[in-house]
Design a protein around this nucleic acid. Structure first.
Length: 288
DNA sequence: AGCCAGGCCCTCC
DNA sequence: GGAGGGCCTGGC
């Protein structure tokens, strides 16, 4: 089935820029699990081609379109932030890369897992969580499982999560799963909240600090000004914007500065700079 | 062998 | 408020 896209869209950088961890690539086809379906997608000339199961393509198409961030007016985003030469350069390189609109719970779990880790390990940890605690999806081909619900993960408990090799993150996950299952935080409703309120709600959860909260807000909660400051972004900002006094700032202060500087779509600026920085491998020695 | 990784949390100043 | 250290585990 085809989702027509008349505007800018680049599938590969969208799925391979560290926003998400369950898509697997073979050639130009990506296979992932979303909305309880095993989905295969590939970029076509006139849009995004996909197959899915067990549900019907007609049911999934609008959901998938929403997930892929196709509703966003990308040219408007570009106009708002291309005044910055670094961002402008990154836009030229990854034109069409979009920010996904993921399930908030899945996104939250993935980024709790991301602490002091790396993409291969995060992917493995997340897939192990699904394999152990997620509901099987009945389709032919690669057996895969749905992402475990908050209740399923809370039920699993810290010990069994730890045994999967999640390390100290197991305690965070167990506690946060319990809190979400109990309704202490209603993740979906945070899409309607102001940035500051969503931030406070998320950081009340175990294992969720400023960085993780901003990732969740950006990749699943429609908070386009969210700006996750990780070590890559920190180094990039310190290298490029030292004139603005960024070097002496604490991480949350640095985030505030960036949100002010990049504006309404600061999160998009973040994503382009992050992806660029990672691919160019300039994280270790600044300026190398 | 020892350090660092896409942080968070706790303690102490 | 901010600096410093510990934390699971894996990879260089």
């Amino acid at each position: 089935m085809l989702i027509p896209v008349d505007g800018l869209f680049a599938l590969a950088p969208t799925l391979e820029s560290g926003q998400t961890f369950r898509w697997r690539r073979s050639g130009d086809v990506f296979e992932g699990v979303v909305f309880g379906n095993v989905v295969k997608v590939r970029q076509a000339d006139d849009g995004v081609e996909f197959t899915c199961g067990p549900d019907d393509g007609k049911y999934l198409a609008p959901l998938l379109s929403d997930y892929l961030g196709l509703a966003t007016d990308l040219p408007a985003v570009y106009r708002s932030m291309s005044h910055d030469p670094r961002v402008s350069e990154a836009i030229d390189r990854y034109r069409g890369m979009r920010i996904l609109r993921q399930d908030p719970w899945e996104c939250l779990v993935c980024f709790i897992c991301s602490s002091a880790s790396n993409i291969p390990r995060i992917s493995r940890n997340v897939e192990d969580l699904c394999a152990s605690f997620g509901r099987p999806i009945l389709v032919e081909g690669t057996p895969r499982r749905a992402f475990p619900t908050p209740h399923e993960l809370a039920e699993a408990g810290e010990r069994r999560i730890f045994e999967l090799g999640l390390g100290y993150r197991a305690a965070y996950l167990a506690k946060t799963a319990g809190a979400v299952a109990d309704g202490a935080v209603d993740l979906m409703s945070l899409r309607e909240e102001a940035y500051g309120d969503a931030l406070v709600a998320l950081t009340s959860l175990d294992g969720v600090g400023d960085k993780v909260a901003n990732c969740v807000m950006l990749f699943s909660l429609d908070q386009t000004s969210a700006f996750p400051v990780d070590v890559w972004i920190k180094r990039a900002l310190q290298e490029w914007y030292s004139d603005a006094g960024v070097n002496k700032m604490s991480l949350p202060k640095m985030r505030l500065w960036a949100q002010e500087y990049f504006g309404e779509y600061a999160g998009y600026a973040n994503q382009y700079l992050f992806h660029d920085r990672r691919l160019l491998g300039r994280g270790v020695t600044a300026g190398a």
